[in-house]
Amino acid sequence: MTAITRRLRRLDTNLLQLVLLTVLIFAGMAALNPDRFLRPYVFESITFIAPELGLLAIAMMVAMLTGGIDLSVIGIANLACILAGLFFHAVGAPRGPDLVNLSWPLVAAGIGIALGTGLVAGAINGLLITRLRVTPILATIGTGQVFTGICLVLTGGPAVVGFPRLWGQIGNGTAFGIAVPLIVFLVVAGLVWFILSRTAFGINLALIGTNARAAAFAGLRTGRTVFLSYVLTGGLASIAGILLSGRTNAAKSDYGVSYLLQAVLIAVLAGTNPAGGRGSVPGIILALVALMLLSSGLQMMRFSNFLVDLIWGGFLLLSIALAAWRNRVR
């Protein structure tokens, strides 16, 4: 018994608050829609939709760890899957069985293209931020425009529709009764958690975010570390793009635009300090679950998407107030 309380006490208070918030939202939504909310279908659909947003939120958290931000994640995600989609249309066929039944080596090549796009895009951000010393906000606003612009130039505006069946499996399929996107998310999240909390690279990132000057004086190669963190962010964004295009079977220059605010919101709600130094993957997962429960509950109550936007924005402001209050207590 004492062992349990000791373990509980060692848990981050922030995580405890998040668990409490999740339980509260769950109970509230269940009380408001008793007959519709507590159905397996609701939770099953969350396991398909939440992973792409969760990956974007983790990407945002990684950028925030060093006091930066990545506003180009949506552009990267869209560019990655548009390039992969155009590749499939070029090697397979624009539509029809040839495209649907594309062999797995070619699909794997498409995944490679998408991931590579994300890594290169992240490297461009990283170079701008560390070599040219452009502020992350402005650098990623600029590159986000360029990535989205390239999407527009490549597609001319309309969506790239139709992906191979295997690609769709990544966003839509199930394995062992579990949604494949959820498996992808958990694997990637576990990997990022390991990198951030169990490797020198992750510890260095947090130190740079806490005090860049002290980190430099301590002999850390801050430029290279920050650069790599943006490459990681870009890679995570492209995986989110793969899941999104796999689920919807399409890729478009303006898909997922509202995800940007939601990713920032989840990162901030998860206790990430946008000024740098603090952020954790378990926090992101809890905040993600809380907000997915909230938004699916609201949709069940026939709230329009605009009202959901209003509530997301309000929630972000509320979580800022909460964070300020928490810091005052400390």
Partner: peptide
């Protein structure tokens, strides 16, 4: 929000902007 809660203006204005747009449309 910027003064009393000491939050980065980008994140504050991202929140207020989305909330106001959602209020108008919703």
């Amino acid at each position: 929000f910027v003064h009393y809660l000491r939050m980065i203006p980008l994140i504050v204005t991202l929140g207020t902007g989305t909330a106001v747009r959602g209020f108008i449309l919703g």
